[in-house]
């Protein structure tokens, strides 16, 4: 596909020439590996795409607290409860880093949160699936956080400085999320027969949704060429999805777990795992708001927001009084 950055100049030839000059300088900066900072000139489309991606990423962290959050009170030991609390708290923090990065582009926190609560904003499709059993908490850490680390390690090289720096911080913390999940899964695979069944069932539930989490096929991702050209992304959805499969299949084999894909086989020549066809109808259904938990997730966020209204009102009143006293 040809990429033609949208001109932002109307029909004024002088403005058009100046735009081309600025765009050329901007692309040369990216080619040199420089980071673009908030006050630097950037094409409107670069800003628009980044606000879209970063706010969706922030919402994903916030909604991502919900599937696992329900297991905090039901964690099987105090140790597991502490770990899960810390993980969910990290996700709240990651949402804050990302909302901050989007704010540097001119988006406001109020607009972003309103869009999420109104159901207009997108977030990662994976969080619209339920965490049905305790083993799901382990498998989410192993699959979903591994997938997130692959995506975010790529984004840590992004051309936009504040986004790249947020990713560096997040990746360092998410290795804990992946490891705690793998530890739960490992212990369950070595446990009783019913624990082994529970963890295998959780693997069966989360495998395909995790593959979908990388987003549509490259052929169906119209934004990808522009995002790659401007250094926002350095790898495509399909490349990252393949990396995840190649990393995860040997881990599952070592743990004695099977993956729910009869077509899964190793291509020795390419050194890669070939996997079956993703159910894209299911993917689009979930993205468009009709997954198993979309409605529940938004209702939970709205309720949390409404329940916190009196706290925000009190804080604001106190803040105003402090300012008046000063």
């Amino acid at each position: 596909m040809m990429v033609s950055p949208r001109p932002e100049t109307g029909s004024n030839p002088e403005a058009a020439a100046e735009y081309v000059e600025r765009l050329t300088a901007f692309e040369a900066r990216i080619a040199r590996g420089e980071k673009i900072e908030p006050r630097d000139w950037m094409p409107d489309e670069y800003r628009r795409q980044l606000i879209r991606m970063i706010s969706q990423h922030a919402h994903s962290e916030i909604v991502g607290m919900l599937p696992e959050g329900g297991w905090i009170t039901r964690a099987p030991s105090l140790r597991r409860k502490l770990v899960l609390l810390a993980k969910v708290q990290d996700e709240a923090g990651h949402g804050q880093y990302l909302y901050h990065a989007a704010e540097t582009l001119g988006a406001t926190r109020e607009e972003m949160i309103e869009a999420l609560l109104a159901g207009r904003a997108k977030y990662s499709s994976i969080f619209n699936y339920p965490a049905a059993a305790w083993a799901d908490v382990g498998v989410i850490g192993w699959f979903v956080d591994s997938a997130a680390i692959l995506n975010q390690t790529m984004l840590a090289r992004s051309s936009y400085g504040p986004y790249a720096r947020a990713m560096v911080r997040i990746c360092a913390e998410e290795n804990f999320h992946r490891k705690q999940g793998m530890e739960i899964v490992l212990r369950l695979t070595q446990g009783t027969a019913s624990q082994q069944t529970m963890v295998q069932e959780a693997v069966n539930r989360w495998w395909w949704p995790t593959l979908m989490m990388f987003g549509p096929r490259d052929a169906d991702s119209p934004n990808t060429p522009m995002l790659v050209r401007w250094g926002v992304k350095t790898r495509t959805n399909d490349e990252l999805r393949q990396d995840f499969v190649d990393q995860t299949v040997p881990e599952a084999q070592a743990m004695g777990l099977t993956l729910p894909d009869p077509e899964l086989r190793f291509d020795a020549q390419a050194g890669r795992w070939i996997f079956g066809t993703i159910d894209w109808d299911e993917f689009w259904k979930v993205v468009k708001g009709n997954g198993p938990c979309n409605e529940e997730r938004i209702l939970a966020r709205r309720q949390a927001h409404d329940d916190g209204a009196w706290v925000r009102a009190a804080l604001q009143a106190y803040g105003t009084r402090q300012e008046q006293a000063a």
């Binding site: 810390a86 804990f176 490891k179 705690q180 793998m182 530890e183 490992l186």
Partner: peptide, 18 residues
């Protein structure tokens, strides 16, 4: 809160053993 550090989890060792 040492459990916030990935090194707290003996996952690499367990995987090697397996």
């Amino acid at each position: 809160k040492p459990f916030r550090d990935q090194a707290f989890y003996p996952v690499e060792t367990l995987m090697r053993q397996l």
